[in-house]
Design a binder for these strands. Structure first.
Lengths: 129, 129
DNA sequence: CCGTATCCAAAACGATACTG
DNA sequence: CAGTATCGTTTTGGATACGG
């Protein structure tokens, strides 16, 4: 998270925008949430998707998302351990916003000054199978 | 900004979500953008809307938004000085995402653990349409 | 496999004072 | 009015290393 969780802006219009943003900021939360739209995933599954995330970060981000009630963490009592992360209803309700963000990103990425690494040539995304 | 500007995630699906998010993170950018949807504003006008922002912060956030091509800064050569901030086309194209975020915020704010400051009495949530 | 703990570097942010 | 400059604190996030 960029700031202390659950800031108290005075409740002017725009407050809710930041409140929402405050839940999905943090370096990885947006992507995590986005990937979870596909369905539940295990810890290392997510980790693979996010390539450069560290365990520590992934754990913290996931825990915060859990604390905010956006994802649900399910621990299976078995060996080796298995933990699933899934979107809660509340988390899933963020989908429209997430998708809007993604579409904007897709549409404007080619304009990003530093985003030359991203060549979205045949960029085809089919999120929900 | 929470992170270095224009991170280079590997371009998996989800990349564009974070790319978009990276432009509107920072403690105030979301709200600034949101308020600018109403039309151009002067520095102190924005400042008043954001009540608790400091000059320094407002300046930096505004400058970053400008650098990212989301807002346009117009300086009028007069005394006393006057500077207008307006959304660029690109900034305005963020409107759908901003609105989606705001709606989600409005719908879910009453559930925020620490958001007691915000009393939206007639809280009605209809998560998934 | 799925974490925690510790240490550390870099940022984001705030307060305050000063300026054209 | 609309900033800059400087300083100090808090928050983030990365690198290990260790544990159930």
């Amino acid at each position: 998270m960029t700031r202390q969780r659950h800031l108290s802006y005075d409740c002017a219009p725009g407050c809710s925008v930041e409140a929402a943003l405050s839940l999905i900021d943090g370096k990885w939360k947006g992507v995590i949430l986005f990937h979870l739209l596909d369905g539940p995933m295990r810890f290392n599954e997510i980790r693979r998707k996010l390539a450069k995330v560290t365990q520590r970060m992934l754990t913290t981000q996931l825990r915060e998302l859990e604390a905010d009630g956006l994802v649900i963490r399910t621990v299976f009592a078995q060996v080796p351990p298995r933990v699933d992360y899934a979107l809660s209803d509340r988390g899933r309700s963020l989908a429209p916003a997430l998708l809007a963000l993604k579409q904007w990103g897709d549409a404007h990425m080619h304009l990003f000054a530093g985003a030359d690494a991203c060549s979205l040539t045949a960029a085809n995304d089919t999120p929900a199978p």
